[in-house]
């Protein structure tokens, strides 16, 4: 199977005090550390496992700046054969614009499957995969936790709510958005990344794709970022660990739980 996998670099935001920048429409990025989007990590692993089973190639694609090449190198180290970065310059992009760019890139390739993550950890749109499918006029499935290639198609497991799964069969080529837990992503060492530096990483300026300006107009624009409105929030228990533990046990007993 020939598989294209779309990946994105995202900031880590746990244990970080985010600040909104002067524009009021973005966060200050200089203090942040970045990683491969969690969902995309599973998507790349899935692509590579499918390739190991069925043959073919895996191409990783990102739309981003030179800094974002770091996640492509990681994909190459995991086993992707080739990587492509589309450089969008500093134009505003929403999910629609990204899907149009990705569609143009994918159209130029031979593919049986395109994999994306279910959502990106920063903006939480959860839309690029299915938008891309529609641009390619390909069938799709969102929130996929299992892929079983069968002749001409694939059995697909989709995760619903409450521990329920839905099994279906999809025609290929198809676009699938991958959910966490579908596999166990392999470990990537610094050595591995160094070794993969020899693999092909093409940079494509957006202009080379020849997409007309109209198609690159976002359907949404951010008007403002703000901090979560004040809520009552939690009453913070103070003191050393022993005193906190005492307070916790007291609360638990008060709530009618016997321990």
């Amino acid at each position: 199977m020939n598989i294209v996998v779309c990946v994105k670099r995202v900031p880590m935001t746990q244990e970080v005090d985010l600040e909104i920048d002067a524009s009021g429409k973005d966060v200050k990025a200089d203090m942040l550390a970045y990683v491969l989007n969690e969902w995309d990590n599973y998507a790349v692993e899935e692509a590579i496992q499918l390739k190991e089973k069925t043959g073919g190639t895996v191409v990783a694609v990102t739309i981003g700046s030179e800094d974002d090449e770091e996640v492509l190198r990681r994909c190459l180290a995991m086993g992707a054969d080739k990587a492509v970065r589309v450089d969008p310059g500093d134009r505003p992009m929403d999910g629609l614009v990204k899907s149009r760019i990705l569609a143009e890139v994918v159209k130029g390739m031979e593919y049986d499957l395109v994999l994306t993550g279910v959502q990106s950890d920063d903006v939480n749109d959860g839309m690029v995969g299915v938008l891309l499918a529609e641009q390619l006029d390909a069938p799709h499935a969102a929130v996929v936790t299992g892929i079983d290639p069968q002749d001409g198609g694939a059995g697909v497991k989709v995760e619903l709510e409450g521990g329920m799964d839905e099994l279906s069969r999809v025609n290929l080529p198809a676009v699938l958005s991958i959910q966490t837990g579908i596999n166990e992503p392999r470990y990537v060492s610094i050595m591995g990344i160094r070794k993969a530096a020899k693999k092909e990483l093409n940079v494509v300026p957006l202009a080379d794709l020849g997409i007309d300006e109209d198609a690159l107009t976002p359907m949404t624009t951010v008007e403002e970022y703000f901090f979560p409105p004040e809520t009552e929030g939690a009453e913070i228990l103070e003191g050393d660990a022993a005193s906190v533990a005492e307070q916790i046990l007291k609360i638990i007993k008060e709530k009618g739980v016997s321990i």
Binding site: V118, G126, L131, A142, V143, T220
Partner: peptide
Amino acid sequence: QSPWGMDLAPSLSVKTGFPLATD
């Protein structure tokens, strides 16, 4: 914004040409 809604809304947006905001 459920697994099914995430499967549908973006394709409906492309099909109709109407803008979509998710989640």
